[in-house]
Amino acid sequence: MDTVMHLNLRVDRAQYIEQIRQVPGYEYIHMVRQAKYMTDLSLFNKKVYYLNEIFSPAEYVKNNHITLLHAHHAQLGILLLPFKEEMNLPLVTSIRGRDATLADQPIGYLEHIKMLFDQGELFFPVCQFLAEKITDLGCPSDKIRVLYGGVDLNQFVYRSPNQRDSQNIISFGRLVEKKGHLILIRAFHKIRHQFPNATLTIIGSGPLENSINSLATELNLGHSFRFLKQIPKDQVQEELTHADLFCAPSMEASNGDVEGIPNTIKEAMATGVPVISTFHAGIPELITHDKEGILVQENNVDELADAIEFMLNNRQKWETYTLAARQKIEQNFDLNKQLLQQAKYYDEVLGD
């Protein structure tokens, strides 16, 4: 069986574990740059290695029967180019968001990514939006294979939307500008007078944590607002079961950073929680406005507030949205189907 050496940013549960460890027909090596990026020790096993501790690439490749390299961000693909050249191994690279832009990139990034496009075998943008972005940067279209991230449908089980009188709004993800949490808090503040029993829960960690808490305090949200930091994945799923609406107000950050398609939206859709999001990046590939959910213009407090108000006033529409959303996930974003597609792309590169 062929072995793929995957280079990832970190070893943690948010970092594409299934796309590394569960590709059918392929063994894996789970590589990160240094030991400090081994952030979830529960995922450590004998197949986890550190790139900076490989002193003889030839011996390492031979001993581990490696036939293919997979970098899970463009920056990591650039890092692997000397290894690829020395070992004469094919390289595929996933494109996940900011790496398809020049946002906050080091000097020389455009030159280096063009080198990656020239020398790499295939590129897996996680949505058509990012495929177009890397085409604009110079990636040959015949090297691009869109590979959507999938959801484990056995883990995220559909249930009908809540029919009780609660109005619990939830959002989770990394606390960075492109996730739009500050916009969501302001939109929630606008609808509070009409829905005094509504609550907003934000789950995550990141550099905007203090800004989020400060804004909630400034707007006097009080007990209507909850912030939960870095809770376990199973607890996030539990929070979803108590949610009435899921909001993902994604937007282009001021530095140009963008999303692909957030997995959090897919998980909410699979679970049967009605979704409000934005016309940002690849999200319209996942949600057709007023079919699988509601989309608004990004970075727009008023439109987001109107969408929340609409959803809370039209509870009878929720099941129509969520059934269509679950069907969309089953058709195009089923983890098992996407892993099989990933294996087929590997086969294509290796000539199997």
Rank of each mutant, 00 (worst) to 15 (best):
Q167N: 10
H242N: 11
N313H: 13
A343V: 01
H73P: 11
P284K: 04
L240E: 05
S214W: 02
A343E: 05
Y37Q: 13
K266G: 11
Y345T: 04
I29L: 13
P90I: 00
L215G: 01
A187D: 02
V296I: 14
E259C: 08
A100D: 08
K344Y: 07
E86V: 12
N213T: 03
G77Q: 06
K84T: 03
T322R: 02
D136F: 10
I203P: 11
Q105I: 01
L130W: 10
E53A: 06
A74H: 09
M31T: 02
V23D: 04
R159D: 07
T67A: 12
G150T: 06
A14N: 13
F227G: 04
Q327L: 08
P82Y: 00
R174M: 06
L130F: 11
E218H: 14
A71I: 02
N332F: 12
Q230S: 15
Y28K: 07
E59V: 07
G120D: 07
A58T: 11
G260E: 03
M115F: 01
L153E: 04
H65S: 07
P196S: 06
V258F: 08
K328A: 10
M311P: 01
Q331V: 05
V4H: 14
M251W: 06
D165V: 06
G138F: 05
D99Y: 06
L208G: 09
V349C: 08
K133I: 02
F124W: 12
L208Q: 15
A100E: 08
D118L: 12
G206Y: 02
S254D: 14
S56Q: 08
I183P: 12
A198E: 05
E348V: 02
T241D: 13
L81G: 11
A74W: 05
G206Q: 02
R226P: 09
R174T: 09
D136H: 14
Q297F: 05
T67C: 10
Q19S: 12
D142V: 04
L91P: 14
P207A: 03
T135C: 11
D352G: 13
S56R: 10
A14P: 06
I169E: 01
T320Y: 05
Y60K: 10
T135G: 10
G282A: 06
M31Q: 02
Y26M: 10
N255R: 07
P274I: 00
L245M: 07
K179V: 00
G180Y: 03
S171R: 08
V126T: 11
R98M: 09
A131Y: 03
T320P: 10
P284Y: 05
Y28L: 03
Y28T: 05
H223L: 00
L240I: 07
Y158R: 06
E27Y: 13
T288Y: 08
Y60M: 09
N263D: 03
I231N: 04
G149I: 00
I29R: 13
T201Q: 09
